[in-house]
Write a protein that binds this DNA or RNA. Structure first.
Length: 315
RNA sequence: CGCGGGGUAGAGCAGUUUGGUAGCUCGUCGGGCUCAUAACCCGGAGGUCGAGGGUUCAAGUCCCUCCCCCGCAA
């Protein structure tokens, strides 16, 4: 088939490669425009664009595909469009261009976890299992008919970043199978059970503020689910401390949530939560690099006063 | 040339403003004390202060160049 692929971050790359190695003709790749990125504001290609360039595939980078990408897409006259974390919403006009429609590789078991960051939200909600779903895109957000899906276990300590890498591969496999079945005309297609749906919004920085009024368990999920981006954090002595890894410990110390129970190179860094206590393992101070919380405390000792007053440490 | 923080002992930091023989916490090694310890006491090793050049009687500290790390914004 003549396929147009749309995707942007790392997550989409395995899917693009899967389409290619399945022998399909990828006649164009749409990806987000190049933007100055990172330190020094250097312009960098998106991972998907990089892959496309390596394979000599024409790249299109409209600011808004439904406005200034329509003509390019129409000119390509694709049989099918495939999207995987493209980052733009397709209009009905765009969806109407490919003969056989548009297939999306979504990183959740639909109709649960619709939205742009399903992997993060699954972990934050404490899910043990998630999955990938291939679906026909329609005008709603992740509301189209389901083609195929495959479950993926969420490992106990797994971060969103790590899980994303695995999901991208599973998604690529599932996509290959879906395309094969579509070609043969044997692909299942069932509408979503909209009564079972859930939708989660885009990630915001503020989501990472650790709220000690929650349980240690919930906070641990939050840290995992927001790693590596946007990251969880709390403030200490006026500085934002990014939290990379923690461990929820059962048992209460009968203190106000937010109280630092201990903080030292030997004792470790433990904070009282609404339920249970949270051992803070890896942190990162402004301008510094990621390090063991105990290493940080060697150079930044907390006074007894700070140790005993709740509220000195908060989101 | 987007904004900013930083590179000092194995680890984390102070010291740089007001140049003058390098310090703290921890680890490590040796010894001691204790039923015991994330405990305590005594002693020791370990640093070309990111690199190069300059100013000076004297540079971690002042000036110039370069390399590397990190955060924000996007």
């Amino acid at each position: 088939m003549r396929i147009v692929f749309m995707g942007t971050p790392e997550y989409g790359v395995p899917s693009l490669k899967a389409i290619l190695s399945a022998g399909h003709e990828v006649i164009g790749v749409f990806t987000q425009p190049d933007k100055p990125k990172g330190r020094g504001n250097k312009v960098e290609f998106s991972p998907v664009k990089q892959c496309a360039v390596e394979h000599g595939i024409p790249v299109f980078q409209p600011k808004r595909i439904r406005v200034d990408g329509v003509e390019d897409l129409r000119a390509l006259a694709p049989d099918l469009c495939v999207t995987a974390a493209f980052g733009q919403i397709l209009s009905e006009e765009v969806l109407g261009i490919p003969r056989f429609g548009t297939v999306n590789v979504h990183a959740s078991l639909l109709p649960k976890y619709r939205g742009s960051s399903p992997i993060n939200w699954c972990i934050m909600q404490g899910e043990k299992v998630t999955g990938v779903t291939t679906m026909m895109t329609d005008k709603g957000i992740d509301t189209g008919d389901i083609l195929m899906s495959r479950a993926v276990d969420i490992l106990p300590e797994e971060t969103a970043g790590e899980l994303t890498v695995r999901m991208a591969d599973v998604g690529a496999e599932l996509l290959a199978e879906t395309l094969a079945k579509l070609e043969k005309g044997t692909c299942p297609r069932v509408p979503q059970d909209h009564t079972q749906m859930s939708y989660f919004p885009m990630l915001k920085k503020e989501l990472g503020a650790l709220n000690w009024q929650k349980s240690a368990e919930a906070l641990a999920n939050c840290v995992r689910g927001l790693s590596p981006w946007p990251g969880a954090y709390f403030t200490l002595q006026g500085e934002i401390i990014k939290v990379w890894s923690v461990a929820a410990v059962a048992g209460d110390a009968d203190k106000t949530p937010g109280t630092v129970l201990c903080a030292g190179p030997k004792e470790g860094f433990v904070v009282q939560c609404a339920e249970g206590t949270l051992c803070i393992k890896e942190i990162q101070a402004p301008g510094g690099k990621r390090m063991d919380a105990r290493d940080y405390l060697r150079g930044h000792p907390l006074t007894t006063k700070e140790l005993e007053s709740a509220g000195n440490i908060n989101g």
